[in-house]
Design a protein around this nucleic acid. Structure first.
Length: 508
RNA sequence: GGCCGAUUCGUCUAUCGGUUAGGACGCCAGAUUUUCAUUCUGGAAAGAGGGGUUCGAUUCCCCUAUCGGCUACCA
């Protein structure tokens, strides 16, 4: 019987969660759910220098908003069978395995300072700390036993490096890319542990934790592919070869224009969010926009992200989370990076907006209106939403599409005025006002035929009259069906706007 | 520079040796409409290049090119 599937999302709390990270989390989640397995959230804060307060909370909130549920670890409960889930709180655990490697002669102490290493890198082209150079460096392999002892006891800062045996082909079996073979000679003796903060580096920490937490599948970004042979070696050195998880390296999310990894700056430059939620940088105070605050529905973001690198082989484009869980497969994840197509993201949101009920949308839209000091009757609002929602991509677009329902025009579109406002217009509009004034039933089904009949009877120009009427009500050549507008704003307001337009536009 | 990975319309992608290379976003045109938008219909638009293998390559192999990732006491 196979082991229960267990995957983890392991971001480092160095800032807001990047949208690419969100996709990684999503794929992990889909995979776990599909196999009835567990999804863990682990915080990789082994770099004390890059720790950013609030980042962890942000990550939890973002996943929560998106409906990516965590079964174990951070954000669920402090305990859990493999607690703690914050690597900075697992120091003792790593220490034990560092010592194990040291004792077995598979790792060694190194005392070279960062400055000394920089000098070496400057001096020797393509310098690499490995079998070919390690004997020239300051470490427990090159130094005498007593000197090492002395340096250690004197409290000199050191680092523990893995001892890589050269000239071995390391095979990484990737679920997406197949076998990737890398020769160990190109690997350097990576730092596993640093005494400065008594913390391991990512490489050791992630292997130890994945083993201890019984992770069966490591699904992560492609940027980890080059270091995965190192991880394979680590599993071997630690004696966990049999328990080694399977790897799947996801293609990267690329900039919409040009090349390279999608970054925060692309969002600022091109005007779209690259983060799930708004994020305020504590030191600079600058705010990075998030999808939530930009008006996206979580299901739209999920759907959009899911398809950036995966498809089910058919023409289907709309997927609920449940369908994604059922249909997702690593085999169908593409190998090449995907450029981030923000326009398509908008289209997804438009689609999901149309799926919402008018009441649901009106409920949210109401909050936007209140901020503008507009308090509209909910039933009326629901009606308005039904009329304009198909024109919107976001609920926030609704205001632009419907403001004329709430406020009378302050100015009139010049081009339309020039084109439509003729010598006879004031007279026609006055007649129209009189006609409307006499109507009791102001519903569109009643007013429309009457007004049109009046136009015909007087041999007026249909388009001319109606467009000026629209101009009076809306102020611009836009908007929903004219008589619907009149119905909703009501007889009184319709007449008021009509007279206002006659007054203002006749002056000129 | 070295290593690894990738390469189908502008973009996301389908195709698992034989297709008029399909769909979607975006774009353009037409229809509908009192306006704008929506909607509908139609259109333009792709296998990086070169060698093989094969009766036949977008598909398999090799080379080149291009792009990307990694190359930290960062993840």
């Amino acid at each position: 019987m196979d082991k229960k599937v267990r995957v983890r999302f392991a971001p480092s709390p160095t800032g807001p969660l990047h949208i690419g990270g969100v996709r990684t989390a999503l794929y992990n989640y889909l995979f776990a759910r599909q196999h009835g397995g567990d999804m863990l959230l682990r915080i990789e804060d082994t770099d004390s220098a890059r720790f950013v307060p609030g980042a962890e909370e942000y990550i939890v909130e973002a996943l929560n908003w998106l409906g990516i549920e965590i079964d174990e670890g951070i954000g669920v409960d402090a305990e859990g069978p493999h607690a703690p889930y914050r690597q900075s709180e697992r120091k003792e655990i790593y220490k034990k395995y560092v010592n194990q490697l040291l004792d077995a002669g598979l790792a060694y102490y190194a005392f070279d300072t960062p400055q000394e290493l920089d000098i070496m890198r400057g001096k020797v082209a393509n310098f690499q700390y490995d079998a070919s150079t390690r004997m020239e460096m300051q470490n427990s392999l090159s130094l005498s036993k007593s000197e090492v002892e002395e340096r250690l006891t004197s409290g000199e800062k050191y680092v523990v490096r893995i001892k890589i045996e050269p000239n071995e082909d390391i095979v990484v079996n990737d679920l997406i890319r197949g076998e990737v073979i890398i020769n160990s000679s190109i690997l350097d003796d990576k730092v596993l542990y640093k005494s400065v903060d008594e913390l391991p580096t990512y490489h050791l920490a992630n292997v130890v934790d994945d083993y201890l937490m019984e992770i069966t599948h490591v699904i992560r970004g492609e940027e980890w592919l080059p270091s995965s042979p190192l991880h394979v070696i680590l599993y071997k050195y630690l004696g966990w070869e049999k328990e080694m998880p399977q790897f799947a390296h996801l293609p990267l999310l690329l900039k919409p224009d040009g090349n390279g990894k999608l970054s925060k700056r692309d969002g600022d430059r091109l005007g779209f969010p690259v983060f799930p939620l708004d994020w305020e940088d504590a030191t600079t105070g600058t705010i990075s926009k998030g999808y939530r605050e930009a008006g996206y529905f979580p299901e739209a973001v999920i759907n959009f992200l899911a398809l950036l690198g995966w498809n089910n082989g058919t023409d289907q484009e709309m997927f609920t989370m449940q369908e994604l869980i059922e249909q997702f497969s690593l085999e169908r994840v593409s190998k090449s990076g995907a450029k981030f197509d923000y326009e398509k993201g908008k289209w997804f949101n438009h689609h999901y907006l149309q799926l919402k009920s008018n009441e649901e949308i009106a409920d949210i839209f109401q909050h936007i209106l209140v901020q503008k000091d507009i308090f509209e009757d909910f039933n009326k609002l629901t009606k308005i939403v039904g009329l304009v929602k198909e024109r919107a991509n976001f609920i926030t677009d609704l205001w632009e599409q419907s403001s004329y329902f709430f406020v009378a025009p302050e100015s009139y579109d010049e081009k339309t005025v020039k084109k439509r406002w003729k010598e006879d217009t004031p007279q026609e509009m006055t007649e129209l006002a009189t006609l409307l004034k006499g109507l009791d039933d102001f519903s569109a089904v009643n007013t429309e035929p009457i007004v049109k009949q009046w136009i015909t009877d007087n041999s007026y120009n249909m388009g001319g009259v109606l467009n000026v009427f629209r101009l009076a009500l809306v102020g611009a050549p836009k908007g929903v069906h004219l008589f619907d507008i009149a119905e909703i704003i009501g007889k009184e307001e319709t007449l008021r706007r009509l007279n206002l337009a006659i007054e203002r536009l006749s002056e000129e």
